[in-house]
Design a protein around this nucleic acid. Structure first.
Lengths: 229, 229
DNA sequence: CTATCTTCAATGGTCAAACCATTCAAAATA
DNA sequence: TATTTTGAATGGTTTGACCATTGAAGATAG
């Protein structure tokens, strides 16, 4: 019912005040906060304390700091990118049961495939086929594991971008920029396994190209399920 | 191809060093970092700079700071809770197109309902019915809008908890603790609308109770779609 | 007059030393 | 033995100084 009372730290209060001003829109993206030496007077605190507050706001991606004359704290646009840090940390730490992550991916990526199929333009499909070609080349010319995984990640992220929903885009970014160390252990380097993997990708792109959302979703889920065993 | 080179800030380097030690497991959850006055010697930096690094790590939920003798920075367990801040910020700022958020919720909550139906125990179902009763009481006794919305949020979050997948649990937490200001404008206070809304919730719980995942998913998605118009 | 170079002021980054506030445990006291 | 007092450990804050980077104004050369 009650929550533990947090110790009153001055910088926390400053963080909340500035954050409120930003997310309420009183300070729009691109606008600049006063210089540190002025802000510290406004809040009647020391510069060190103010700077601790600025570090927190920076970490939250609410401000950017620029150096030099005319520099200072600039209010950033709030975009779904703010979810990347937390999700990346979660994946990288490997402290989350793998089955949870797989379940979540199955859900998310299945829907991404479905939405992408519904919304892909001709150019989008062409872009996907280009990526497939990159993947195939890396197999044919034995460019190695790295090149193939790159193409694979690119394909998944491109599908997310095609949905147009930036939430999916950033979730996918966070996952694929951090998940390598997870499935580097599962995905065999064997040629035959990679070929099978590549075939899956082709099926998915074909489904997207034909605009069949359900099929794309199914193919993607099938693909991910195979990956995890 | 290249990324802009970030300015070399000492505290950033310290953040990365400590973070790496934590997520690599060299420092386990519950263990304590050395006191500030000792750490500053180790890194050969000033205390102010070290404290800026600690603020960042604290914001990332990697450490907790305790006051007083024997206090200090304690390594936290990395849980899916790390995703809450970013998602909360995203929703609260209202800078994301509402349609994206709705699409994401439709996806997530549909799957939550499906998984909950597959996994709910008898006690889980009893708990859901209790929450439904709370909602109905708030309608029958005209306890007002607040009480009903509370029960509604509680139901959604309980479903997430029933899935057992903590990722869903924290996503649902972030959404329902911040979305009120969004749909407070959509959901009519009219008795008839609330009754319809309540009926939806009953359908969902019934589907979960019967273990019919597909039906639960459909009912939930139907419910959310109605909400948004 | 234009183009380049120099200088300087604004601003964030860092350091150092001090003092305050909180907490816990040991020592003193009833 | 139980309570109170004291003091040390540790985070929170302040002040003032100096460094590094940047951009613009002014000086200089062509």
């Amino acid at each position: 019912m009650f929550k533990p009372v947090k110790q009153n730290r001055i910088f926390q209060d400053v963080v909340e005040q500035i954050q409120d001003v930003i997310i309420s829109g009183q300070l729009a993206a691109g606008e600049k906060l006063p210089p540190e030496r002025e802000l510290k007077e406004t809040f009647a605190i020391s510069r060190g304390t103010l700077r601790e507050a600025l570090r927190v706001l920076e970490q939250k991606r609410l401000i950017d700091i620029q150096l030099g004359a005319g520099g200072g704290a600039i209010v950033r646009e709030v975009t779904p990118e703010v979810i990347v840090d937390g999700l990346s940390l979660l994946i990288r730490s490997q402290k989350i049961p793998l089955e949870y992550l797989k379940e979540f991916r199955l859900d998310i990526e299945g829907n991404i495939a479905r939405l992408a199929a519904d919304r892909a333009s001709a150019e989008d499909v062409a872009g996907l086929r280009d990526i497939l070609k990159r993947a195939k080349d890396s197999l044919d010319f034995h460019e190695g594991w790295e090149a193939y995984v790159d193409a694979d990640a690119c394909l998944h992220m491109t599908l997310a971008r095609i949905t147009g929903n930036t939430i999916y885009e950033y979730i996918q970014t966070a996952i694929h920029k951090n998940i390598n160390r997870y499935y580097v252990e599962f995905l065999e380097h064997e040629e035959s396994v990679l070929c099978h993997h590549y075939k899956d990708l082709c099926d998915i792109v074909d489904a997207v190209a034909s605009g069949d959302g359900e099929k794309a979703c199914d193919k993607m889920r099938l693909h991910l399920k195979r990956l995890g065993q």
